[in-house]
Simulated scan of single mutants.
Amino acid sequence: MSLHDDAVLVLKGYEGQPELRELYLEHLAARPDGMYKPCTGVHVTASALVVDPTRGRVLLTLHRKLNMWLQMGGHCEEHDATLAAAALREGVEESGIDRLALLPGGPVRLDRHETPCAWHLDVQYAAVAPADAVERISEESLDLRWFAYDEVGSVADASVVRLVEGTLARL
C-alpha cells in the first residue's frame, strides 16, 4: 500500500472535522503526488505533539524558519510507509527522543495552514515520551523546550493549543 493510499484510509476513518477532512480527501483524489513537498501549492504533512503525561507537559520546538513554537512535524518522505510513521519519524528527528510512542486511535486533529512553501494539510498525532526521555535539539530548531499544558497558550498559536486540548481529551 502506498503512503497516498494509507492517507486516504486514515482520513476516511477519521471522524472529526468533517469539512476539513473532505478538503484533504478531495486534494488526494485530485493529486496522486499530494503527499509530498514537490506538489506545489498544497500538500499533506504529518506532525506529532510530544507529551509527557506523568509530568503534565509538552515538548515544543521553536521552528527555525517560522520562528514559532510548534509541535514536531513536517513533510512526508518517499520512504514513509504510513502517515503515522511519517509523524513518528518527524517527532523523533525533531525531538531527539528515540522511544516515542504514538497515542492509539489515529490522528488527534487536522490543521490547514499556510507556510512559506505551500499550504500544509497537516495530519496531527500525539506521541508519548518515555519517562527517562532526554530531548536533543535538531538543526530545524532554534530551541526545544518543555511547557506545562497550561503554559502553551502563552507561547504558541491557537492551532497548537487545540492540538494540546485534543491530546489531553485523548489521554
Rank of each mutant, 00 (worst) to 15 (best):
Q124E: 15
Q71I: 05
L70G: 10
G13C: 04
V44Y: 08
V51R: 15
G13R: 02
D122T: 09
A84Y: 00
L11K: 04
A133V: 13
K12W: 01
M35A: 06
R57Q: 13
R162M: 07
K12Y: 00
S95Y: 02
E151Q: 15
L66Y: 13
E78G: 05
E139I: 10
L144I: 12
M72G: 08
A46Q: 04
E135Q: 14
A81M: 11
R109Y: 03
V160S: 07
E77R: 13
D143H: 11
T61P: 02
D5S: 14
S95I: 03
D6P: 01
S47Q: 09
G105C: 02
G153K: 09
L100V: 00
M72K: 10
L59C: 10
E165T: 13
R99F: 00
H79P: 06
L142P: 08
A126D: 06
V8N: 04
R31L: 00
Y149K: 07
M72C: 15
V44P: 11
P38E: 04
C117M: 14
V50R: 12
A29S: 11
G73M: 07
L168S: 05
G73L: 04
G34P: 11
A48H: 06
E26D: 15
R99K: 00
V58T: 09
C76M: 10
L121R: 10
Y24Q: 01
V108A: 01
C39T: 11
R170W: 07
P18I: 01
D98G: 11
V164I: 06
H79K: 11
G13P: 04
L3P: 14
V155E: 00
Y14F: 05
P104E: 03
G74R: 12
E135C: 09
V164E: 08
Q71K: 07
G105K: 05
M68A: 15
